[in-house]
């Protein structure tokens, strides 16, 4: 089979298996909605009454936890037998790429839904929506790829759910710092030329994470 069609088939398979277990997807959406609502209720504020700094930080913390919950299952959930089957038919590079692409799309959808819900109840102070969405897209790519790789690592150990959080938080922190900073610039509606270098750093970190995952994944896949 051609490389590209194989990759495409693998991504399609991810979508299909997600669609067959709709409860997982619904669970994630409900998790997101409840977290947003819990934050809204705990601040006990009217819409728009929260400082942009807090708004931004809270938004990304919600996204971070949603991402950990959504992506953590990527390798942990699959059974031994099924893993063995993939092992026999596909190259590990294709598997990790298909997972990264799939979870990026999933996280992107979740983040955008979260953004809508969040702005609905907490108000929307974002001035430069286009650039904010750009940061969201780049952030989703970075978080999804880092989490996919870490979940692959953690799936080999017992009590892997705790391990995913322990292993991924410090790895994602640099990424998250850049995301929060660039998002803050977009919220303040600064002149775009002042923070294009931040966007490039974000791109560079994403490139590092994806490249390293691509190179290292074959080693954990074999064990």
């Amino acid at each position: 089979m051609m490389r590209r069609t194989l990759l495409f088939t693998l991504i399609q398979k991810e979508f299909l298996s997600e669609w067959r277990q709709k409860y997982a997807l619904n669970g994630m959406l409900l998790y997101l909605a409840s977290t947003v609502f819990v934050c809204y209720m705990s601040f006990n504020l009217k819409a728009g009454a929260i400082q942009p700094v807090t708004w931004n930080a809270l938004f990304w913390i919600i996204i971070l936890f949603t991402a950990v919950n959504a992506v953590a299952k990527s390798f942990i959930q699959a059974s031994e037998g099924r893993m063995l089957y993939y092992y026999s038919i596909a190259r590990p590079e294709d598997i990790i790429l298909s997972k990264i692409i799939y979870y990026t799309l999933l996280l992107l959808a979740l983040t955008l839904v979260g953004f809508l819900l969040y702005s609905l109840v907490m108000g929307n102070p974002v001035e430069d929506v286009l650039f904010f969405v750009l940061v969201v897209v780049l952030g989703a790519i970075g978080l999804a790829s880092a989490l996919t790789m870490v979940s692959g690592i953690a799936s080999k150990a017992p009590n892997s759910h705790t391990l995913v959080a322990v292993l991924s938080f410090p790895v994602m922190l640099p990424l998250l710092l850049v995301i929060i900073k660039s998002a803050k610039y977009a919220i303040d509606g600064l002149d775009r030329s002042t923070y294009t270098d931040q966007i490039f750093v974000l791109l560079a970190i994403n490139a590092i994470i994806v490249a390293v995952s691509y190179l290292l994944f074959p080693y954990i896949w074999r064990s």
């Binding site: 870490v150 690592i153 410090p170 790895v171 994602m172 640099p174 750093v201 590092i208 390293v212 080693y219």
Partner: peptide, 24 residues
Amino acid sequence: KISSVYNVFAFAALIPLLFILPRM
């Protein structure tokens, strides 16, 4: 094997943290 993979992966994430972000 697994921890070697994590070591390399974490180090790659550490480079921007230690050498790029503080300088920005």
